[in-house]
Design a binder for these strands. Structure first.
Length: 414
RNA sequence: CGGGGUGUGGCGCAGUUGAUAGCGCGCUCGGUUUGGGACCGAGAGGUCGAAGGUUUGAGUCCUUUCACCCCGACCA
């Protein structure tokens, strides 16, 4: 993409109504736009980042048999009344409105009910199990107070996968499998080292649920980390009993602030009971489907990654989620234009994503923008370098600059 | 929802004891520049969140209201 064709602009000044670093930088760099508190538009560059995060999650969900679908945000109240969760006393973040005819509808804050209801059309036999439908969907939650930029919005992207299993035993196997896959997602996003599988409160069907918590000062949760076992305990279940369960002592744990970047939960038959989702087992008897739910918030992850890696010059995206791998800076006329154009075509032709700064502005502005946007590799083509047949490559994360020949450059970026 | 704070050109801000708004960035035009957000000159752009009120006169005072931010509570 050529910067000259990009409609967004960068800004030296951060908006005064944002304090969160992720929102300030993402807005300054032109990745998002604030519509209202907790509600953000994804601009072209931000959309690329969000899509990259979603793609990674999608690949991992598909690797364990996930079936992607897309459910509706608009929800009729009936199915929610069946489970008792239409009431504002039970779910206090509902956005509700009415159809023209007067019937009440809500904007989905989650999808257990409609999906369980949907699966009644397809699950009848033990042969139909297990299945793992999932989706990427905008969830709506009328938070009393949204904050921290992309980290806690009223409208946000969520990957929610639900498991439908024949038995708890079968469920437990999948639960373990998807937990491992979640960790792989965080690894690919560059957050692996600082993300911990964390014990949290369970429900009627399991003593614990698990959250994936990434250590960060902007976190809303406090977790107690056991570095040796690479696990953690959420403050909400930080008791002697839990410590004993996990075979750890208080002395071995360190308290840290963390951001919840995912959760896995054993639902059991809570929803299959409420909505009567059953199947005929091998022995001819009717049984309730055993369920689990598994969430990851791509938009929250985007905010966290932005905040986590940023430095005083701006954003620093891991290569896997960056809107482009290369920021091509062109300095000079004629020869520089010719060489930069050729390099742009060549890199793009090789499948390397490039943001080509073809604007007629001074070099300093291009350098500053490349840093603010956080593109992993900055490649500079200038008249000064053409004479020596060299390209300058600066790595965003380290700031290190090296000079490379054309072939070495291609090797470096491939 | 409780407490605190803020709303003035696109963005960031200043406006002293009330007298129909000013700066920086950005933008437009001309020129000089061109390896770290250049410089000179000339311009465009706001009636001060909204409504009501006090006053000869309100961005400045009063009332109501909306929005946004922070702390807390809440977080299926």
């Amino acid at each position: 993409m050529r910067i000259s064709e990009l409609f967004t602009k960068t800004s030296k000044l951060a908006p005064s109504d944002e304090v969160a670093k992720n929102a300030q930088l993402l807005i300054r760099a032109g990745f998002i736009n604030k519509e209202m508190a907790g509600v953000y538009t994804y601009l072209p560059l931000g959309k690329l980042v969000l899509d990259n995060i979603i793609t990674i999650i999608r690949e991992e969900m598909n690797s364990i048999g996930g079936n992607e679908l897309s459910m509706t945000a608009l929800q009729s109240k009936e199915v929610w009344e069946t489970s008792g969760r239409w009431s504002d006393d039970v779910i206090d973040v509902w956005f509700k409105t009415k159809l023209a005819g007067g019937s009440e509808v809500g904007l989905a804050p989650t999808h257990e009910e409609p999906l369980t209801n949907l699966m009644k059309n397809f699950i009848h036999s033990y042969k139909d199990l297990p299945v793992y439908p999932y989706q990427f969907q905008i969830k709506f939650r009328n938070e009393l107070r949204s904050k921290s930029g992309l980290m806690r919005g009223r409208e946000f992207w969520m990957k929610d996968l639900y498991s439908f299993s024949r038995t708890q035993k079968e469920h437990d196997v999948f639960y373990e499998k998807i937990s491992n896959v979640y960790q792989r997602v965080y690894d690919r996003l560059g957050l692996g080292e600082s993300t911990y599988k964390t014990f949290a409160s369970g429900g009627s069907f399991s003593k614990y649920s698990h959250e994936f918590q990434t250590v960060s000062d902007v976190g809303e949760d406090t977790i107690y980390i056991h570095e040796g076992k690479k696990i953690a305990i959420n403050e909400e279940v930080f008791t002697d009993e839990v410590l004993a369960d996990l075979g750890v002592t208080r002395e071995e744990l360190v308290a840290k602030k963390a951001v919840e970047v995912g959760n896995v939960f054993t639902l059991g038959t809570k929803f299959s009971d409420a909505l009567d989702l059953h199947f005929t087992d091998e022995d001819g008897t009717s049984k309730k489907v055993f369920m689990g739910s598994y969430g990851i918030g791509p938009s929250r992850l985007m905010g966290l990654i932005a905040e986590h890696f940023a430095d005083d010059k701006g954003l620093v995206w891991p290569v896997n989620v960056a809107p482009a791998k290369v920021y091509l800076v062109r300095i000079g006329d004629q020869d520089a234009v010719k060489q930069a154009d050729e390099l742009y075509d060549e890199l793009t032709g090789r499948g390397i994503t490039v943001l080509y700064d073809d604007r007629n502005v001074r070099p300093g502005e291009k350098f500053a923008d490349s840093e603010l946007m956080g593109i992993p590799y900055r490649v500079t083509v200038s008249e000064r370098l053409i004479a020596d047949n060299q390209y300058e490559v600066t790595e965003r994360s380290s700031g290190e600059t090296i000079l490379l020949t054309h072939n070495d450059l291609l090797d470096k970026l491939s």
